[in-house]
């Protein structure tokens, strides 16, 4: 028989808010890269503006967590969930900042002619968003195995990043006039690469919720 119905209802609401925040962040990444592809400055500005809402959502969830800790004395997996949510929303907020960073680069690029058709960068964005989505599914389903699997897939994003980096480097070596434009694209790729890293941190928290053990799953290769 469920006893703490009020507390567990509130905890569920917090989890739902985290899902809502994650979907805002995913949309931000998606739109920032779309703005880059389509040179859509209006959309880029929208991403920058929307980041305020993401930041606000993070504080809202944080407050709800503090409230639950202060008033409900959560224990065991409930406690681990709340502590993990506090980390997860920080990671989400930062991924939102990376999307905002990309949008700002789009504004900087403005109407400069494109250096090259964008192929790997949209791939990186797609992969990162997919990992993010699945990490939140793993959180909902308390699925440590799939969280670990997602961390392993971060290598794909790293590979794409290295590919983009090498390619842009060769552009710059061939023609120094491309340095500014190429550097901007490297920043974009770097923002995506960092976002995927943050998804792996979210996955580590999912594993902690399920197993109670804090483990660094994907040790940094840098």
């Amino acid at each position: 028989m469920e006893i703490r119905t009020v507390f567990h209802k509130k905890l569920k609401e917090v989890r739902n808010e985290v899902l809502a925040m994650a979907s805002m962040v995913e949309k931000a990444i998606d739109r920032a890269v779309l703005a880059l592809k389509q040179r859509d400055l209006k959309l880029a500005k929208q991403v920058i503006e929307d980041d305020m809402t993401i930041n606000h959502k993070r504080f809202e969830i944080e407050e709800a967590c503090v409230d639950l800790i202060a008033t409900q004395q959560p224990m065991a997996s409930d406690l681990r969930t709340i502590i993990s949510v506090l980390s997860i929303i920080t990671e989400l907020e930062r991924i939102g900042d990376h999307a905002e960073g990309i949008a700002k680069i789009v504004l900087m690029i403005g109407d400069e002619p494109p250096l090259k058709p964008l192929i790997d960068i949209p791939h990186m964005a797609d992969k990162t968003c997919e990992m993010l989505r699945r990490s939140l599914e793993a959180l909902t389903n308390r699925d440590a195995d799939s969280a670990r699997q997602i961390v392993a897939e971060d290598d794909d994003v790293d590979r794409l990043y290295n590919q983009v980096f090498r390619e842009l480097l060769s552009f710059m070596a061939e023609d120094p006039k491309t340095i500014t434009r190429a550097t901007r694209l490297i920043w974009v790729a770097h923002n995506l690469e960092r976002s995927a890293d943050r998804v792996t941190n979210i996955c580590e928290r999912v594993v902690f919720i399920v197993t109670g053990v804090m483990e660094e799953i994907g040790a940094s290769k840098y």
Binding site: E2, H8, A76, S77, V213
Partner: peptide, 19 residues
Amino acid sequence: IFGRPRDQRTEDYITGRFG
């Protein structure tokens, strides 16, 4: 016990999922 109980019955009791 309060951070990561091993037995589901302990978990259920201390998180108020049965009584």
